[in-house]
């Protein structure tokens, strides 16, 4: 299985259609085409960080500055960013729209991803962060738009979990 270029394109078009012009990201295999598209898009500002918690701060700065933005990361990065999410975004009511590659779940062949994959949903629930699974490329644009809208109306972090069904494919 490889990363689906077609579905990545649908995802990227969804990000653009939601009005997003600023992305903070930490690279990860499933995000490879998305990051390439962002890099090649003159309308998009892509900031790659050294650690995902930084992206929470940068996203907050972008929000204060009035720039529609999303974070692109994998679930282990989400787990590593939790104090930033709690003690900046949730404490101050700063919206975050997080598109999280959900590694380490059904079908996962790599052992190192599994623990993070297993705890991702319970951690999101424990934190009270609204989330949804994205599985269908036909629905992804609507899901991104709705996640973004909800983060802004609720002034809270919102997560969209990018599943294996969505991210992997034949080409």
């Amino acid at each position: 299985m490889t990363v689906s270029r077609e579905n990545s394109k649908a995802l990227y078009q969804g990000i653009k259609a939601a009005g997003v012009r600023f992305i903070t990201a930490l690279p990860e295999t499933w995000l490879i085409y998305l990051l390439q598209m962002a890099e090649d898009d003159p309308e998009m500002c892509l900031i790659e960080v050294a650690k995902e918690e930084e992206a929470v701060g940068i996203a907050a700065g972008a929000y204060f500055a009035g720039t529609p933005n999303v974070m692109l990361l994998q679930n282990h990065g989400f787990l590593g960013a939790i104090n930033g999410i709690v003690s900046l975004a949730m404490l101050y009511r700063v919206p975050l729209c997080m598109l999280i590659a959900h590694r380490g779940h059904m079908g996962e062949p790599y052992p190192w991803h599994t623990q993070g994959g297993i705890v991702t949903e319970p951690v999101l629930r424990g934190l009270g962060i609204p989330f949804d699974y994205a599985r269908d490329p036909a629905k992804i644009a609507k899901q991104i738009r709705e996640a973004y809208t909800f983060s802004r109306s609720s002034l809270s972090p919102v997560a969209l979990l990018l599943t294996r069904d969505l991210m992997e494919g034949e080409a």
Binding site: G57, I58, G61, A62, A65
Partner: peptide
């Protein structure tokens, strides 16, 4: 003025996000 009263370390990241966008 924005006072980051917790989230240690992220003041610089917030500054970076602001500076890049303004």
């Amino acid at each position: 003025f924005f006072y980051l009263q917790h989230a240690m370390g992220l003041a610089s990241s917030i500054g970076l996000g602001l500076a890049l966008n303004l």
